[in-house]
Design a protein around this nucleic acid. Structure first.
Lengths: 206, 206
DNA sequence: TGTACATCAGTGAACGCGCGTTCACTGATGTAC
DNA sequence: TGTACATCAGTGAACGCGCGTTCACTGATGTAC
């Protein structure tokens, strides 16, 4: 990551703009490297075109930058999935499939970021409640979506929560393996999603 | 990781023992931290109780240590799954389930290692053919196992390869999410595996 | 309208740290004679 | 049986690097008078 040629200093009262530039640079680095460790104060500063200590006016430390980027990415994921699920007709099976496709496309469009969303702070004693809550938000929309199918008589699920964990696992695994093993002859994405979700959500076949 | 109190120098002709100690230390660090970056020449040396440059007698560089550990772990995974699949009776559905359970238990018994097996060298242009081959070895046993069920008339799969990718994705996702989000109220493991594999392998229900 | 000054938006040098790697070395031990 | 010596299994000091963070600072700009 090269240092930008020259960056004009923000005008008085507009110093907060730098905060946005820092977040954009950190997001870019995260996406390009797929590595949280690559987001260093110095690499971000180089990317923005500032001196490293200038970051301290906007973030208390390195970790705060990454946390802010990750929170924003989770919020975007939540919004994309819930928007897509709500749009158009009332067919609950179609809504479930739209939500699942949106989830997987979101992930595969920004693989570097997605891996960090669900890959960091791995070991048992490190995961915080807040991290769990962020991850679970989208999951509950999935449980609701399966439950909608049951209510409409389209699914034989007797336990939408458990079936939703299976769907979530299937989507996550498919996304991660595709990211990490791109040379593998993966079947076409959308067909795979639909076929997997139909079976795991116990959608009735006529 | 503390430095061992005192380590007796190997006897003449037994210097190769240090190689094994280095690999054991690297494996331990990988498992405890779940992070490839934590395996540094100095951290390994501290763990073994030697000076860092002593490692150069056995490995050309840092990466070679990690590669050796990862290769060994893939070999163990391959062996565990294939052994378990072959043992006992000729029921192909039972064999498939045994193999899948063995895979997931292997992963959850050593979460730090498993994450690195399938998590490293992420971005498209970095993954080598060799890395892909290692990852695919176990997968082909899975394809065979599904095909065995079809041959015995126990599965309705018309495409064991594609169905096996779904099972692999489901297992990988379930393992990784359980590792990374341990506070989530996961359903019991073995029931989840069986239920997911039954549906994704299209096992016939009477 | 001019000007002193407070504030804002940063900078540059320096610190101590852990890292990979190089280098010249040391001291025990087995072996040739 | 004794001893010189080659070899083996390492060691300790040092290098340059990028890192997070601290510190005193600078220079443009808006504002009070």
């Amino acid at each position: 990551v090269e240092k930008s040629a020259s960056r004009p200093r923000n005008r008085r009262g507009e110093g907060a703009r730098l905060r946005e530039e820092i977040l954009a640079a950190a997001t870019r680095i995260l996406e390009e490297t797929g590595s949280e460790e690559a987001v260093t104060l110095r690499s971000v500063a180089r990317d923005v075109g500032i001196a490293a200590p200038s970051i301290y006016a906007h973030f208390p430390d390195r970790e705060a930058i990454v946390n802010t980027v990750v929170d924003a990415a989770f919020e975007r994921l939540r919004e994309v999935v819930s928007t897509v699920r709500a749009e158009r007709g009332a067919d609950p099976v179609a809504a479930l499939l739209r939500g699942c496709r949106a989830y997987m496309h979101f992930a595969l469009d920004r693989p570097g970021q997605y891996r960090i969303l669900f890959g960091r702070t791995a070991l048992p004693d490190v995961a915080t409640d807040a991290a769990v809550q962020r991850r679970i938000g989208v999951f509950y929309a999935l449980v609701d979506s399966v439950a909608d199918c049951v209510k409409a008589g389209r699914s034989d699920s007797t336990d939408p929560f458990t079936d939703a964990t299976a769907i979530w696992s299937g989507m996550h695994g498919a996304v991660v393996l595709r990211i990490v093993t791109p040379r593998f002859p993966w079947p076409p994405l959308d067909e795979s999603i639909d076929s997997m979700v139909y079976r795991l959500a116990r959608i009735r076949t006529p």
